[in-house]
């Protein structure tokens, strides 16, 4: 039974030798391939070609746009760099001008302050002199009055107003000269 089974295995089955060209399989294969080609041509390859073309066009456009954008960016960068360089000079000039103005203002303020101080000093000196003069006068008048009063009481003679004034003037003169 075993022998028969194995022998049957070898002999049975509808297998065809691999090098046998079977017309029906060949025709089936041609039909399947043609059908596949037709289906894929309509539903796959055509959209795929369109998609790939669109993608390539988009990539080319994107690259071109990127190139243009790069050129623009470079131009803008150059302009900005030039602007920056100009801004640096302008800033330096502004700073120099500001410094000059500040110096002028400083000198003006200093001069004005000095003049004002001088005026104040002179005014103060004048006021002091005036005050001194007034004080001396008051002192002289007071001294004369006292002296006249004392002298009058000594000599028993009362001095009138004119004598009084002459004595003051004389005392002042002597005071001033003596001082």
């Amino acid at each position: 039974m075993l022998n028969q089974s194995l022998a049957g295995l070898i002999a049975s089955g509808a297998a065809s030798p691999p090098l046998e060209l079977r017309v029906d399989t060949l025709i089936f294969s041609l039909l399947i391939f043609a059908g596949l080609l037709a289906v894929l041509f309509k539903f796959a390859w055509t959209p795929i070609v369109e998609g790939l073309d669109a993608r390539e066009k988009r990539m080319v456009d994107d690259i071109e746009a990127a190139r243009i954008a790069k050129e623009q960016a470079e131009a803008q960068l150059t302009a900005y760099q030039e602007k920056m360089a100009g801004a640096d000079g302008e800033a330096s000039a502004l700073i120099a001008e500001a410094k000059s103005t500040a110096n002028d203002a400083k000198e003006k303020i200093m001069a004005e302050a000095a003049a004002e101080a001088q005026k104040t000093r002179e005014r103060a000196l004048a006021e002091i002199e005036a005050a001194k003069t007034a004080a001396v006068r008051d002192l002289a008048e007071s001294s004369v009055d006292s002296a006249v009063s004392l002298a009058g009481s000594i000599v028993g003679r009362s001095l009138d107003k004119s004598d009084h004034s002459a004595l003051i003037e004389k005392s002042l003169e002597q005071f001033t000269t003596g001082a």
């Binding site: 894929l40 998609g51 993608r55």
Partner: peptide
Amino acid sequence: VAAIFIPYAKRIKSGN
């Protein structure tokens, strides 16, 4: 093959 490439075509049709 059809089950792979027809969906693939739909995915890239618009250039995506």
